[in-house]
């Protein structure tokens, strides 16, 4: 178990983070070169002011007409994404491991709070799963990959939750937790999870078009 732990917590984590950051950088550089080569006008129309204006509205719960049209989804989506980002970053156990490896730490959340946020993420994933099956307009555009992506995102939280509470098979669950987290990190740049990187850019472009050219709002 020592060997597995050291392997997963060491080199595999390195690899996962390198692929994650390297992959995001690669996607970004590819995007920018593609824009330069094929659609340089995008740079012409990009506007910091209108881009941020649009991002800001879409970043506020109920800040847009469509968020207001779907109140339950809006609450779940915002809670899900906030917890998805904040819980792993501010989890004490993660901060401790990072400090042990790098010597720098950061403030962390009480475990009970992070535990609650994990439940929110898992509940959110279940909500999205049910929505995907139940809502015809979502099911119609759903493919197997959508379920796989949802599972990739949910897995680190489910395994983390079970491991934290030590319900069963603690050691294996923790290894599964680490590995599933690494799978998620690696998947982000190369799947539709890349919306983490691209969504602000597409939103900014649409905001720029609407604000700068169309003199209209896009929320």
């Amino acid at each position: 178990m020592h060997t597995i732990y050291e392997w997963v917590a060491g080199p595999l984590t390195w690899i996962a983070f390198l692929i994650f950051f390297g992959g995001l950088l690669y996607r970004l550089v590819r995007l920018v070169t593609l824009v330069r080569r094929k659609e340089p006008f995008i740079f012409t129309y990009m506007s910091l002011k209108y881009g941020l204006r649009s991002i800001l509205h879409w970043s506020l719960p109920f800040g847009t007409v469509n968020w207001r049209l779907h109140p339950v989804l809006t609450i779940v989506t915002f809670a899900f994404h906030i917890c998805l980002l904040a819980a792993p970053i501010f989890l004490m156990a993660h901060a401790i491991l990072f400090k042990e490896a790098w010597g720098v730490g950061w403030p962390s959340l009480p475990d009970a709070v992070a535990d609650g946020m994990t439940v929110v993420v898992i509940a959110g994933a279940i909500f999205f799963l049910v929505r995907r099956i139940v809502r015809p307009e979502v099911r119609f555009v759903t493919s197997a990959s959508d379920y796989v992506l949802l599972a990739i995102v949910a897995a680190p939280f489910v395994t983390g939750f079970i491991a934290y509470h030590q319900f069963f098979a603690y050691r294996w669950m923790l290894v599964a937790h680490m590995v599933s987290g690494q799978i998620m990190l690696v998947a982000i740049p190369f799947t539709r999870l890349a919306h983490m990187l691209f969504a602000p850019l597409t939103r900014a472009y649409m905001g720029s078009e609407f604000g700068g050219v169309r003199r209209a709002i896009d929320w």
């Binding site: 020592h2 732990y5 050291e6 156990a93 401790i96 400090k99 042990e100 491991a163 934290y164 509470h165 030590q166 603690y170 050691r171 923790l174």
Partner: peptide, 27 residues
Amino acid sequence: DAFHGNCKQCHLENGKGPVMCGECHQR
């Protein structure tokens, strides 16, 4: 940090003893 340094680091160095959070902090 002192506790973790005393226990976990020694376990890691010697390749023996618990190193995962829940192995020591058992519920």
